[in-house]
């Protein structure tokens, strides 16, 4: 599963990835996240450490970063995923920029989208709503290209510690530019949306929610794909079984071609192999639902 982080410069994407990784690497509710490359692990942990202990924030990304992670449940690898971080400026660049072109392509094919928006700017700067418009436009274009595939969509209001998120007026103002998109997504069954305030300071808040939300629905989407494939293979095996006769087995052997019996057995083996991939996803998906209990969706 690929997860794309979308957001303008200084929205807090690079800071988020460090703190999310540090929190999830320690583990929450039996789940943990681990980088496949030690270099990524070390740099993310060090960056998170610098934020928490020294209030030293990472420099904004000057290039696209791709992190290969795996979700573990009680120490067992259950779901590999790739996290894509873009330079904020890519959103405003033309397609002649390789990074902008790659972003457009990744949005069409990724398994989940996390949109980052600076709550402080949304509250204090009237023009910040126009940045949201650009995000919405990218999302609308990407959703058309994706068809009906299950898509988790997280709107992360970063720097939530810099605004009064207990004040309804503040929440209404910062959420307002997203309302048309939220209402549109709420009408669908295949896009699983949530909006969550996130703080990426020395006292991180909700940093685990965006990644776990994406993973939960990414796992559910993968499980649904496998379930559909298993059902198709079982149906194909049943079709083959109906055509299996002793005569067919004999002449297939004689002509050195696969018999309906062997074709059916092949489908059953494939279905079994896919079930073995499917079955370990069920419990983590349910458990993730419990970890995310209280997080509202739209």
């Amino acid at each position: 599963m690929d997860i794309v982080m979308l957001g303008h410069s200084a929205a807090g994407k690079t800071t988020y990835i460090s703190l999310m990784y540090a929190a999830m690497n320690r583990g929450i509710g039996g789940f943990s996240v681990h980088a496949n490359q030690y270099g990524h692990h070390a740099s993310l942990i060090n960056a998170a450490d610098a934020i928490v202990r020294q209030r030293r924030y990472p420099d904004p990304s000057d290039q696209r970063s791709v992190f290969d992670f795996v979700l573990r449940h009680h120490g067992e690898d259950v779901f590999p995923f790739r996290w894509r971080d873009y330079r904020g400026g890519a959103l405003r660049e033309r397609s002649t920029s390789p990074q902008a072109a790659q972003l457009h392509e990744d949005l069409k094919t990724c398994g989940g989208i996390v949109v980052f928006c600076d709550s402080y700017r949304l509250w204090h700067e009237p023009g910040a709503a126009r940045d949201v418009r650009q995000l919405v436009s990218h999302i609308q274009r990407a959703l058309d290209a994706r068809g009906e595939s299950v898509t988790p969509l997280v709107i992360a209001f970063t720097k939530a510690d810099l605004v009064d998120i207990d004040n309804d007026e503040v929440i209404a103002r910062i959420a307002e530019p997203f309302v048309p998109l939220i209402e549109a997504v709420a009408q669908t069954e295949h896009i699983m949306g949530t909006a969550i305030p996130v703080a990426c300071g020395p006292g991180p808040v909700n940093v685990e929610v965006p990644v776990l939300w994406c993973l939960r629905f990414g796992i559910i989407g993968r499980a649904m794909q496998l379930q559909k494939s298993i059902e198709e293979k079982i149906a194909a095996a049943e079709y083959a079984a109906q055509r299996d006769t002793l005569t067919d087995r004999f002449f297939s052997w004689l002509n050195d071609e696969p018999s309906w019996n062997s074709i059916g057995q092949g489908h059953l083996r494939d279905a079994q192999a896919e079930y073995e991939l499917f079955e370990p996803l069920v419990e983590p998906a349910n458990q993730l639902g419990e970890v995310l209990d209280g997080v509202s969706g739209f």
């Binding site: 902008a100 418009r133 650009q134 436009s137 990218h138 058309d144 048309p180 209402e183």
Partner: peptide, 18 residues
């Protein structure tokens, strides 16, 4: 493109949006 009354518009070419 920001969305109004439930309707949205986008440009097929992202550069036109810019």
């Amino acid at each position: 493109s920001a969305g109004i009354a439930g309707y949205f518009v986008y440009t097929r070419d992202p550069d036109h949006d810019i």
